[in-house]
Design a protein around this nucleic acid. Structure first.
Lengths: 84, 84
DNA sequence: CGACTAATTAGATGAATATCTAATTAGCAA
DNA sequence: TTGCTAATTAGATATTCATCTAATTAGTCG
């Protein structure tokens, strides 16, 4: 849960998740959408991966990132505990 | 949304929210539950208030903190956008 | 092999953050 | 008013974090 909240704390990382909602993208494609260097985006992707919010798949030169929403269920039930 | 995610990032603040789920508590009562100084807890309560996750009510010497769950609805709908 | 590309890792830096002690504010009551 | 208590504010510090440039890894193709 800690890694999850940590990952969601950063606005750039949340924006990456929203981007990936449309479908998988390569690291480069993601980096293009932001005014940040590729290493910075790489670092954000690493934290998202640690939180299990994305998975990565290497194919040749490219690494494709996809959304994983299963962890969000944990957050969802944590939240719902307050709404009752 | 940024203040909300920021507030939820810290484990102590999440623990405070879970405590308040049982009902309102004074700042001192909250501080007693943690191995942290009162000023530190005061600071955490301040951030929770900024995020509108709690409200405070002064009565004499004591300040009572209560949970506010309305902001969590925003988070809930942000989350649900990923589960569909 | 050698050149080129996608992406990450390494290392550095400035800003944000959690924490503490000391000082201050505010309320109550003798 | 004076003393006591609850809580916050002020100021300092160590750590975490987002970001950058430079260097490295790994894959493709002539």
């Amino acid at each position: 849960m800690n890694l999850l909240f940590k990952a969601l704390h950063d606005p750039t990382r949340r924006a990456i998740l929203e981007l990936l909602r449309e479908g998988p993208l390569t690291a480069g494609d993601i980096a293009e959408q932001f005014h940040l260097s590729k290493p910075t985006i790489s670092h954000h992707l690493d934290l998202l991966r640690q939180a299990e919010l994305v998975t990565s798949h290497k194919q040749g030169l490219y690494i494709t990132y996809s959304l994983t929403t299963t962890v969000l269920d944990d957050l969802l039930s944590w939240l719902l505990q307050f709404k009752s």
